[in-house]
């Protein structure tokens, strides 16, 4: 393998890894607060890219307006899912909440088939994202450069919100101790809704960039990335935003490099994430950046 092809793979893996990271953050935030795998997160991601698609094609909006509208709609959509499928089960056993999440995920992707159709549609790529840049033999499409930058900006904003605002402090409090936070007068339901809103907006940003990178949209497109990004969140240490970013980058890097270095294993590309997950769960169950918490009786 020459240096140029390696650089080519490196660029690809960073852009894929940033996409994973962006979606993984949504999982990790919801898990941190509700202790719930939001199975429907992949569907939120799908919804975001479809909204951008319809805004651009059916309504003929310019891409920047279309993207903003898509993010707003997806944000509302995520809050609605929480209200409908998770809120009524706040005090139910965890298995019930998880089944509800699985049902919601299936419901949304199949509603997607009903309303958006089962045939893949092609996402139009605005010119600015479609410039081919050649640096020292490495050919990059401009969207691959935009993705890490946009991810970084989104994460900086997110970390600011979480660490330096009042709502962010409340979010951290709820995730640390749900009951105590409620007793201290924090409106837990409002914080949960807010968490879903942020997670869904990030999923929308991820979905739009995913569609720019891989322009074929189908209603089931959210399932695989959804699972992988949850795995990324677990690898990094669930509940930990920086961990989710690290996990996403590792996953993107691993997937691309396995195919690059061991082409005969390319059929196993999708298995990589799951194998990695199991190895991590066995040797470092709290994830790479997570803290081990002893179980209380």
């Amino acid at each position: 393998m020459t240096f140029t092809t390696f650089m080519q793979h490196l660029v690809n893996s960073i852009s894929l890894g940033s996409l994973y990271a962006l979606i993984a953050v949504g999982y990790t935030m919801v898990y941190g607060i509700l202790r719930l795998i939001n199975f429907a997160h992949g569907e939120v991601f799908m919804f975001g890219s479809y909204m951008a698609f319809f805004a651009m094609t059916t309504f003929g909006m310019p891409w920047y307006i279309a993207f903003i509208i898509a993010i707003i709609l997806t944000c509302i959509f995520g809050m609605l899912i929480e209200k409908a499928a998770y809120k009524p089960l706040r005090d139910a056993p965890r298995i019930s909440i998880m089944i509800s999440a699985i049902a919601a995920s299936f419901l949304i992707s199949n509603l997607g088939i009903v309303f958006f159709g089962g045939i893949p549609v092609t996402f139009p790529r605005p010119d600015i994202f479609d410039i081919r840049i050649v640096i020292g033999g490495v050919s990059i499409i401009s969207v691959s450069l935009f993705i890490p930058v946009i991810t970084a900006v989104a994460l900086v904003i997110l970390l600011y919100i979480v660490n330096h605002t009042k709502t962010g402090t409340a979010m951290r409090a709820v995730s640390k101790d749900y009951e105590a936070a409620r007793l201290m007068g924090i409106d837990v339901n409002r914080i949960i809704t807010f968490t879903f809103a942020i997670g869904s907006s990030l999923a929308a940003v991820g979905g739009i960039m995913w569609a720019l990178r891989f322009p074929a949209l189908i209603p089931f497109m959210g399932i695989m990335p959804g699972l992988k990004c949850f795995i990324a969140a677990v690898i990094g240490g669930i509940g930990n935003i920086k961990g989710a970013v690290l996990g996403g980058l590792i996953l993107g890097f691993g997937e691309i490099m396995i195919v690059a270095f061991l082409p005969e294993l390319s059929g196993y590309r999708d298995a990589f994430a799951f194998i990695f997950l199991i190895v991590i769960l066995l040797f470092k169950p709290a994830g790479l950046l997570g803290k081990n918490i002893a179980e209380k009786v």
Binding site: L36, M98, V234, G267, D270, I278, L282, P285
Partner: peptide
Amino acid sequence: APVLRLKDDYLAIATLGFSEIIRIVLTN
């Protein structure tokens, strides 16, 4: 043997992962 040490949602996601791995191995 490895997976049943996990609990709740970790167990769910690990078994789901294994089921996908089985499917991928069968495909290959």
